[in-house]
């Protein structure tokens, strides 16, 4: 019942947003402020184009590649930092430092220093890694020591402790980290693709093309597509992990 009311409010909010947007766009030129109708027409033309799916696929693939490339070292370093306090302190500094560096500085440095075709993936790696590392490390540091003590009394094997205590304790931190990292990854990936123009069939490159043509409706349509794709993957993570948790 409560969920239904929330859905109704969300729908009302979206409709109100479109109405306000429509009225604000009245009397203005499309170039300056496109109306919702113009954006939806542009959206339809993008989605119905044969290059739409390969374009989205290329960006999504790069997002997942950088996510996977960041996740594995984040997990390994998270485990090492739990075991070695010095590594924990060092990584706190390193991840804090990377987090504080402006994304645009990372993008520009990567464009100047690295092979062009890999730059979006590498840029995203540096943005996503600290988020994943911090969550995994925090999850490991916050494992309930009382449960570990209980496991020691009942002589659990190390494998049993990892499987039954560490992994489930870490799960909520990994889900939260993965969700925020993936959302962030989509945003940064598209930005990096705008700067890096090697492959035309990426969302960022398409946005750049619309920018050259001063087609604001096209840019807004692609922005809506990025939001939709990001939400779909966020929901997939939620569903996947919720089902796994219920199976425990």
């Amino acid at each position: 019942m409560k969920k239904n009311i929330q859905t109704v409010f969300l729908v009302i909010f979206i409709i109100a947003f479109i109405i306000v947007w429509h009225f604000l766009s009245l009397g203005r030129k499309t170039l300056i402020f496109p109306s919702p109708y113009e954006v939806f027409v542009s959206l339809y033309s993008i989605i119905s184009s044969p290059s739409f799916l390969p374009t989205v696929f290329n960006t999504v693939r790069a997002v997942f590649l950088s996510f996977a490339a960041a996740f594995i070292p984040a997990l390994i370093l998270g485990i090492i930092s739990k075991l070695v306090p010095f590594i924990h302190r060092l990584m706190e500094f390193v991840s804090g430092f990377i987090r504080s560096v402006p994304t645009v500085a990372i993008i520009l440095m990567a464009l100047l220093l690295l092979p062009v075709s890999y730059t979006p993936v590498i840029i995203c790696y540096f943005v996503v890694f600290p988020v994943l590392y911090t969550n995994i490390s925090e999850g490991l540091q916050n494992v309930d020591v009382k449960l570990i003590e209980m496991a020691r009394i009942y002589k659990f094997s190390n494998a049993k402790i990892i499987h039954n205590i560490y992994v489930p304790s870490l799960k909520t931190y990994i889900i939260a980290g993965a969700r925020s990292a993936l959302g962030l990854n989509f945003k940064v990936m598209v930005t990096a693709e705008v700067f890096n123009f090697v492959n035309h069939r990426t969302i960022g490159a398409q946005m750049y093309m619309h920018k050259i043509q001063i087609d604001l409706a096209g840019i807004m349509a692609w922005a809506l597509i990025v939001v939709a794709v990001s939400i779909i993957f966020d929901l997939l993570i939620k569903i996947l992990f919720r089902e796994n948790t219920q199976n425990d």
């Binding site: 009382k146 449960l147 209980m150 009394i153 009942y154 039954n164 489930p168």
Partner: peptide, 27 residues
Amino acid sequence: KLSFLFQEPRLLPWKNAWKNLELVLPD
């Protein structure tokens, strides 16, 4: 063979009642 009744139950929150017991039994 030791067992311990702690001040707080120290149960695994993600395991149901019988699986919390099953865990301490020998493999």
